[in-house]
């Protein structure tokens, strides 16, 4: 067990031999966010769109009396917008003291994954994706991309730098 705690554990504090991830999907791709970062999982009831806002921001919503900025994961990743209605799910995250809701297609179960199945980010990935992820877990039937929640929510600075 202990030999498995190599530099991966060092790189990401709090990552023990096994880590727990909240899984989610966007455009048929499975992602995982470290459970310690997830504050809430909720259904997006009503969104107030913000005219002239950056594209990643789909609107503002009221989560138990708190105004939460809703950020669409698809847009952050440059994926096409989902079509059609249906319930939107969002994951509540805290970033620099502010509340965000990461809008995704669906939220799945919580997985406990061992370090053995984890791989570094493949080098040939689209740079945008590469920046937003911490690595990949090989699951039985699919791959789970470990999202870097802070990087996902840091789009603002990127946009300005560009």
């Amino acid at each position: 067990m202990t030999p498995a705690m190599t530099h991966a554990a060092g790189a990401e504090p709090g990552v023990e031999d096994a880590s727990e991830y909240v899984t989610l999907t966007a455009s048929d791709q499975t992602f995982g966010i470290g459970i310690e970062r997830v504050q809430d999982v909720f259904v997006v009831a009503s969104l107030t769109s913000v005219p002239t806002a950056p594209g990643e921001i789909v609107g503002l919503l009221n989560l138990r009396g708190r105004v939460v900025t809703a950020v669409d994961l698809r847009r952050c990743l440059g994926l096409p917008d989902r079509n059609g209605g249906g319930e939107l799910m969002a994951i509540g995250l805290e970033h620099k003291g502010e509340a965000y809701g990461l809008v995704v297609d669906a939220v799945g179960e919580v997985l406990k994954l061992r370090q053995e199945t984890r791989e570094a980010t493949p080098v040939h990935l689209n740079a945008r994706w590469g920046q937003l992820m911490h690595g990949v877990h090989r699951l039985g039937d699919r791959l789970l991309i470990v999202l870097d929640a802070d990087a996902v929510l840091a789009f603002d600075q990127d946009a300005r730098a560009a």
Binding site: T48, V50, A53, V67, T69, D156
Partner: peptide
């Protein structure tokens, strides 16, 4: 009045946002 999210603060049109009695967020 609640302050705008830092990511939206650059928009000159809005000075903040609020939650109305019916729970809706308005700018």
């Amino acid at each position: 009045v609640k302050p705008m999210s830092t990511k939206l603060r650059h928009i000159p049109l809005f000075s903040g946002n609020t939650i109305l009695g019916d729970g809706a967020v308005v700018l």
